[in-house]
Write a protein that binds this DNA or RNA. Structure first.
Lengths: 203, 203
DNA sequence: ATTTAAATATGACCATGGTCATTAATGACC
DNA sequence: GGTCATTAATGACCATGGTCATATTTAAAT
């Protein structure tokens, strides 16, 4: 960070400024209602410069997504929850993840309603492991495998299938919740669904 | 259909022509790569006319989605599967739905990768019950409630929660499958996940 | 047949995302 | 400090989704 050329410093600074201004404007007026012109004007750069840093307007969303992805890792590391039941650990993880999203609800909405496009284009991206989707899968997979060792998860369970199911339920619940503006039901809903997944529907 | 004014006939005909031409072009070149100009040119109308029938380019996707939604209802009606176990009925329903999507994979992809936007804007739409999402939920809810009566589903299960979970898993699996180009794994995957949901993860 | 009002079609026009040839800033080397 | 190759900044320009005032067509009324 110290022995950096003027060029490199300016470059980073410009990228950050674009990022911050975008975030601010997106929160204020939403993604669609914010124009590149506004962003560049507020950031004090020319329009073309924007595209030197982000290939498209949408790519800003992916950049936000990656920032969020880092957060997922942090969440798993700094909590001592090893003693809890696997189900509770997963629940706790997903709920606290949701709570962190809650802090920045507008940005999160943006992220999730662009989710389809995100998935689409992140498929062949080189940063396959830097998106929230992959990170989440990995964390849940690890938890499930530990769960098997502790005999809290059926040995017969295919962890990939189970992780995908949990993942699906999580994203879907988050989506419905974000859409419905209902602030209260999310943790209850996700908890209920995790219980269901662990205990099963069948009689 | 017979005592229709010239006006009404023309109107319907024009809308259908736009719809057909769009579908054809979307399949050929994808959604993004097809321009309104091309559609209107091929349909033999002026650009402005397009917007008399569809408020936006995206709204075409919703129209496709609604057509698909009708199919979901058809699927439930014309099969005599009342004797099967609830789990198998749900499985059968979702797999045959997926098979029907498979016939028109390009259009289905389009539909699902615009899914985020679809969900977003269909939230306050007047045709709340005409989208695939709502239809699917309703069918699954009915099946689960029957399942409870037959004691094949735990009485303690909240059918809304369970239906949402099944829905989530279905859409997620379909999405992953569409993305991965892997033609073979879908029915196996969805079957495995439904089994998991019915039997539970926990030991 | 003529008039008139409503429905529909039209294409010039606008706003905005994105491109690219040109210009300016930077730093390595002398 | 001056030269030059490399890298970044620029804004005129383009393509396309979407608007709207105007023109045309239809159906009804006389």
């Amino acid at each position: 960070m110290r022995n950096m050329s003027l060029r490199e410093k300016k470059k980073i600074e410009t990228k950050n400024r674009i990022f911050e201004v975008s975030g601010k404007l997106f929160k204020e007026k939403g993604f669609e209602n914010t124009t590149i012109d506004e962003i560049t004007k507020e950031a004090g750069i020319a329009k073309g410069t924007f595209f030197n840093y982000f290939p498209t307007k949408e790519s800003l969303v992916f950049y936000f997504a990656e920032q969020k992805a880092d957060l997922i890792c942090d969440l798993t590391e700094n909590e001592a929850v090893g003693h809890l039941h696997t189900k509770e650990r997963i629940k706790k993880f997903l709920v606290s993840l949701a709570e962190s999203y809650e802090k920045d609800k507008d940005l999160t909405k943006l992220l999730f309603f662009e989710y389809g496009r995100y998935i689409k284009s992140s498929g062949n991206a080189p940063d396959k492991d830097r998106n929230p989707h992959s990170r989440l899968m990995k964390v849940i997979l690890d938890l499930l495998e530990e769960g098997i060792k502790k005999r809290e998860v059926k040995v017969s369970v295919d962890t990939r299938i189970a992780a995908e199911a949990l993942n699906a339920v999580y994203f879907h619940t988050l989506m419905v919740w974000l859409k419905s503006e209902n602030e209260l039901s999310f943790s209850r809903d996700i908890s209920a669904k995790i219980d269901l997944l662990f205990d099963g529907i069948g009689d």
